[in-house]
């Protein structure tokens, strides 16, 4: 069947088998390999993208189910050559080591901040609890999200 998914603002159309998972569509068709394919069982969160704005695990959504919908991946965080504050925060606070969980962590964090611009550490921990970091870097991920929240508050105040 033919599906058309808008990924980071660009329409992508391809013939797929209905059984194809969204994570593979994203990685194979536009070649956006920032979204990682990890556990395959909706546990690890490396494949988290946003589907119509909501954070979802793309290994547990069929590409067919996303037909006609909008997907944002980690590649879509950067705007006009400028990193998203969440990405800057991960850089500033050393929130990644091997980097495998990072795209999912960033997408879950971005979704959190869009809904709750000033989260507590507890709220950040809950928001990223669908991701697993095996470099045991949660402490710095929480610090990175806090950094991003504060940066965004500053920018808002300046404007």
């Amino acid at each position: 069947m033919q599906v058309t998914i808008t990924i980071n603002g660009e329409e992508v159309t391809r013939d797929v088998e209905p059984r194809m998972l969204l994570v593979h569509f994203i990685r194979e068709t536009p070649g956006l390999t920032g979204t990682h394919w990890g556990c395959d069982t909706s546990n690890c969160g490396a494949c988290i993208v946003r589907l119509d704005g909501q954070a979802v695990k793309s290994c547990t959504v069929l590409a067919a189910m996303a037909d006609g919908h909008e997907v944002t991946t980690v590649e879509g965080l950067e705007r006009d050559g400028r990193l998203d504050p969440v990405q800057e925060g991960f850089h500033e606070k050393h929130a990644l080591h091997c980097g495998f969980c990072t795209p999912g962590m960033m997408m879950a964090s971005r979704a959190l901040l869009d809904e709750n611009p000033d989260p507590t550490d507890e709220e950040i921990r809950t928001a990223i609890s669908g991701g697993i970091c095996r470099c045991t870097g949660y402490q710095n991920i929480v610090a990175a999200v806090r950094w991003a929240a504060e940066r965004e508050a500053e920018v808002k105040q300046e404007a």
């Binding site: 909706s42 988290i48 909501q54 979802v56 695990k57 609890s129 991701g131």
Partner: peptide, 9 residues
């Protein structure tokens, strides 16, 4: 129940 990302779906 699961985690917030799963609960979205």
């Amino acid at each position: 129940i699961a985690d917030p990302v799963v609960r979205n779906r």
